[in-house]
């Protein structure tokens, strides 16, 4: 199956990461690739997440999609590089409806927009939160401490 995929997507870069199949593809090929591997038996989308390579790599973000095939007992991981200036990737919800929450979480935490997602809103943070917490330039402990000027009993 992977031979077939290699022929259909010649630009895709195949990586062996600790005996796991990893493929790196361009954002504009993600939907087509997703459809092909879905047909090939990867019927479960296990997880969607992202990595921020702030000041270490370009493009800055990697969107990581972990796929699972129950019939073939195999896993496949897709990495998609996303640039800082215009962080947009096509949504995988039309192929795997279960990508819904995962993509919302990535949007919430990294500010990466998923084009075609039915309900792209923040999921874990409050609606009016500013910034994207899991970005590397979002400081830990940046929330001001409340009530610190309150009366203290000695």
């Amino acid at each position: 199956m992977s031979e077939d995929l290699r022929e259909r997507f010649p630009e895709a870069e195949w990586i062996d990461s600790h005996d796991q199949d990893v493929v790196r593809i361009a954002p504009d090929q993600l939907l087509e690739f997703g459809n092909v591997v879905h047909e090939a038996g990867f019927e479960v989308l296990a997880d969607v997440t992202a990595v921020d390579w702030y000041r270490t790599r370009t493009p800055r973000f990697d969107v990581v999609v972990n796929l699972l095939s129950m019939q073939h007992r195999r896993r496949l991981r897709i990495l998609v590089g996303v640039p800082d200036g215009d962080p947009v990737v096509p949504s995988l919800v039309p192929i795997w409806p279960g990508a819904n929450f995962g993509e919302r979480e990535v949007y919430d935490m990294f500010g990466i927009t998923f084009d075609g997602h039915p309900d792209l809103t923040r999921i874990l943070m409050p609606d009016d939160w500013e910034g994207y917490p899991l970005r590397k330039d979002f400081e830990v402990g940046a929330v001001p401490v409340q009530f610190k000027a309150s009366h203290q009993v000695n």
């Binding site: 997880d47 997440t49 921020d52 972990n66």
Partner: peptide, 27 residues
């Protein structure tokens, strides 16, 4: 329950993500 771990050669993980079963099951 999954753990996606990215290390950059230092003593701390560059990124640690947990694929939480309850999170996806809520859908």
């Amino acid at each position: 329950l999954g753990c996606y771990l990215v290390a950059d050669g230092t003593g701390k993980p560059w990124r640690m993500h947990t694929r939480a079963p309850s999170f996806y099951n809520l859908q």
